[in-house]
Design a protein around this nucleic acid. Structure first.
Ligand code: FES
Ligand code: FES
Lengths: 149, 149
DNA sequence: TTAAATAGGACTAAAATAGTACTCATTGAA
DNA sequence: TTCAATGAGTACTATTTTAGTCCTATTTAA
């Protein structure tokens, strides 16, 4: 289905919440309460995001997590990468090394092309884009004549 | 990892082979021999591709499979769709119906945006593109001044 | 020192995927 | 008309991946 893992989906829910008060520290437990995702799972996700430098953590009592940088600079690609590892449609897109189809290999280069296109797409969308209201206001076109009334 | 299933990868290997002699009928067994993929697996894949109208089948002795249309008109998206079902990054991209995150739903609309972009990409690449030699000749840029020499 | 956090890793359970097998239907040719 | 080759359909099993939990160690404010 070419789908993202549930954890990745959760991650975006969590991150969107954190965008709202970017400067605040959020503890795992707090995030769990707000999002309704079980606390151990939330922790797991947060840890992965820290490891990938999407979030920064502060340890100890009164510790918590915050965004590592502005939402405009956190790409969807980086979030997926944090949760699921390198974005690669096929084994071959990741590395030629342990590929089985030695016989059908003419193709390989092409998946890489598709893969690259998708990567570009995912890098063009940021967390900031994700939290925009679902329905963007339609652009209003004003007849030029109105400007002279 | 945002990856395709193995079967989808196999499918492209099989299809690329079939592109070579588009008019010929290919039996599952023959395809299995050529590609090195086990025959039952090949059959499974071929059946799915027929159901999705990517291939046409002819039953009975001397039967086999052939492409349902020109390689230029078989998109990567349709192959993925045949093997894995509708392309949807998240549950919500497919349908709002059975979605769990009622609380985090502001996001949903945005995955749909990303999903649409990816869908466009996958529809822009066809089987014909996949079988092209791996290295495309680089485009040669000629300084405009040369045109006047 | 204690309580509230995160870090890291190991483990279990559940779900999805891959692969196989079996039976039925179709058709060309002996 | 029968047989052999071939696809259709479906059910099943094994494997792999993913999700989810838990335990222990570390850090730090009060
Ligand atoms: S490296 Fe995978 S098909 Fe060649
Ligand atoms: S429909 Fe899935 S988050 Fe709303």
């Amino acid at each position: 289905m070419l789908k993202l893992s549930k954890l990745t989906d959760y991650a975006t829910v969590i991150l969107s919440y954190m965008v709202k008060d970017q400067t605040d520290l959020h503890a795992a437990q707090e995030i769990s309460k707000v999002t309704g995702i079980a606390q151990p799972t939330v922790s797991k996700i947060l840890k992965l995001l820290v490891k990938a430098r999407v979030l920064t953590s502060i340890r100890g009592a009164k510790g918590g997590y915050l965004l590592a940088r502005a939402p405009e600079r956190i790409t969807v690609a980086s979030v997926i990468n944090a949760m699921e590892g390198p974005i690669a449609l096929t084994e071959c897109s990741a590395s030629h090394k342990d590929c089985g189809h030695t016989s059908g290999c003419e193709i390989q280069g092409r998946w890489e092309l598709v893969n690259q296109k998708i990567l570009n797409t995912l890098e063009s969308v940021t967390l900031a884009d994700m939290v925009l209201p679902v329905k963007q206001p339609e652009e209003v076109l004003i007849p030029i004549s109105r400007l002279y009334k």
